[in-house]
């Protein structure tokens, strides 16, 4: 997993609520047996007409050249639905390291963190302020300080993250390394319960 400390970047706004994982990556693209290459199908059915890559929908932000950056900003309850980690892989593969929303579905949040993608949960009011920025505005996400800042206005908000997950992300560790290191405790637990 790639470490993440601070990201200063423009952002891609998708001002839609309840974005489910079937929109992030439709089921028909889950047939691969590796983790790579999912980015090109991120939001596939919102991005292309009739499933045709030569027909991008002009009104979808990912198709609009004025938007770019490593931060995706979306409406509340982002990532609801299926447990497919392919959703997190496609977001990462498309070049995003941070997703900002006012609410995240549980499984998506875990999947993102396990892949070095930081879910930043902000207040609804702060989210709306970000959506009101123009396309040149930049955001800074500082994981160490747990803050997100809108550069043009200087407005800032604190965000929550589990301290263990924060350490993992800052250093690029993953949970498996930890779990493998406590193998004896696990065996001991198994023996105890019989």
């Amino acid at each position: 997993m790639k470490a993440l400390t601070t990201i200063l970047s423009r952002f891609v706004p998708i001002n839609i609520e309840n974005i489910d994982t079937d929109q992030i990556i439709p089921a028909r693209f889950l047939k691969a047996t590796t983790k790579d290459g999912f980015g090109k199908n991120l939001f596939r059915d919102w991005r292309f007409k009739n499933d045709d890559e030569t027909k991008p929908k002009a009104d979808f932000p990912l198709n609009q050249s004025q938007y770019s950056g490593e931060i995706l900003v979306a409406g509340k309850n982002f990532g609801c639905g299926s447990s497919r980690e392919h959703a997190a892989w496609s977001i990462l593969d498309a070049g995003f390291r941070v997703v900002v929303s006012s609410f995240f579905a549980d499984i998506f949040k875990n999947n993102a963190l396990n892949n070095g993608v930081l879910p930043v949960q902000v207040s609804e009011a702060f989210l709306q302020k970000i959506f009101q920025q123009d396309n040149k505005a930049e955001l800074t996400v500082d994981l160490e300080k747990q803050t997100i800042t809108i550069h043009t206005t200087g407005e800032q908000e604190y965000f929550d993250i589990n301290s263990y997950k924060k350490t993992c992300l800052l250093n690029g560790y993953d949970d498996i390394d930890y779990l493998l290191s406590i193998k004896e405790d696990i065996q001991e637990f198994e023996t105890q319960r019989g």
Partner: peptide, 30 residues
């Protein structure tokens, strides 16, 4: 690795869906 694992909770079990990284964790460490 499937969100509808919640189904099994009908028996009075803690049953939940996980992502693929977590599938790997359970493989490696139970």
């Amino acid at each position: 690795g499937d969100s509808h694992t919640s189904t099994h909770g009908a028996f009075g079990a803690i049953a939940f869906g996980i992502g693929t990284s977590e599938v790997e964790m359970v493989f490696a460490s139970q």
